[in-house]
Design a protein around this nucleic acid. Sequence first.
DNA 1: GCAGGTTATGATTAATTTATCAATTAAATC
DNA 2: GATTTAATTGATAAATTAATCATAACCTGC
Lengths: 226, 226
Amino acid sequence: MTNTKILIVEDHRDVRDLLRDVLANDYQVVEAVDGVSALAKFNTEAPDLIILDLMLPQVTGESVLKTIRKTSAVPVLVLTAIQDKQKVVALLEEGANDYLTKPFDIDELLARVQVQLRQRTKPLNEQNKLTYGAIVLNPSDHQVVINGQKLPLPKKEFAILQLLLAHPKQVFTKENLYETVWGEPYLNAENTLNVHISNLRNKVNDLAGTPNKYIISIWGIGVRLV
Amino acid sequence: MTNTKILIVEDHRDVRDLLRDVLANDYQVVEAVDGVSALAKFNTEAPDLIILDLMLPQVTGESVLKTIRKTSAVPVLVLTAIQDKQKVVALLEEGANDYLTKPFDIDELLARVQVQLRQRTKPLNEQNKLTYGAIVLNPSDHQVVINGQKLPLPKKEFAILQLLLAHPKQVFTKENLYETVWGEPYLNAENTLNVHISNLRNKVNDLAGTPNKYIISIWGIGVRLV
DNA sequence: GCAGGTTATGATTAATTTATCAATTAAATC
DNA sequence: GATTTAATTGATAAATTAATCATAACCTGC
């Protein structure tokens, strides 16, 4: 059992069970049953590979892929019904790394998973600690350290900081940020998010000491680290 | 035509011709007709990707792959006859990056080639960076750098610059520009746009240093980069 | 069910961008 | 060179968006 983590996104229970069974021997497995939870899991779990069913309720696999590709190069292996084969070319161009048509051969699946993981030369020494400047965030024990001082953070603030640190310098629109952290549509929740950001920023700046504004707003666009 | 080089290893003349034809538009193509010449070409040409037929006279594709993998991680895309499918899993484990069964779909081939080549390209946030002269614009972190100096830009000005940089040298009519940036009809908003362009131009020229007028107006027509 | 912290909401204020106007300057046409 | 049309500029008003504060609602563990 490695510490390699695979996210399975599949709404059909039977397929999901099958995938989990065959992958669980060799990998850590996390699961999502629809597009929204897929994105949430993607952000919180930071998987090393994603197996993505195309046919999902509501948010389609395609749009999940697109969203993920905005911030990440994580390998994505798409599952597709045989009649979708025309779509596949477009999908590969949009960022999918490989695909399998259902029903798929288990051994081939495993082999293709291996191929994707092999490409990635991720230094496994540092777990999934996130660092930016003086900020160190460790998801596994839910702890943030800034300049050596511990900073206890409530869940939401932690999640926001984690998302920002996971994609440094990338601009997040308020909508984007809210939907991935809260996992629900951004409906005039503007102020809620603003308040959280404000609180988080104060705490971070307090410890960072420097007049460094780590979390800055880009007027009319969103928020990012600097 | 990029400077990306692909090595085709295929003994059948017709398949080889087909592959060359479809790839030659986008890539440099070198060819080998058997295992021995494949290894020779691999060493002398240093291709960025190899398309390898499994069924070769004398030295088989499998052993070519093995030999290559001793010294190189170059992406290898294997071509296989339909009845070899069982072999494929073993092959992927031995280091092949992908495979296609013959007869293959051209578009799928091209897409899979792209996928393999994409892995080596720049990190995502560098991907859609736009550059023109001393100007570098990065949409993902909403940042403009000119001669190494950051230039913060408001939304509209940023959008205008982005549009210009995306189509360098192309002339934009005022109407054109306004409608794509504002997303609404150009109804005597003439001055609004003019003011924005003027402001943007000043900021750009300030940092560009040179009397370089990056954004020039073409009298009576519109605006373009130079 | 209570006490702690956490999260959401609303009202207010501050900050910044965007639009508009008027006046000037520059370019083209004749 | 006079005239017309387009472009620039600076100033100012309007509109948007963000930050802050105080407070209420909500949980969660005890």
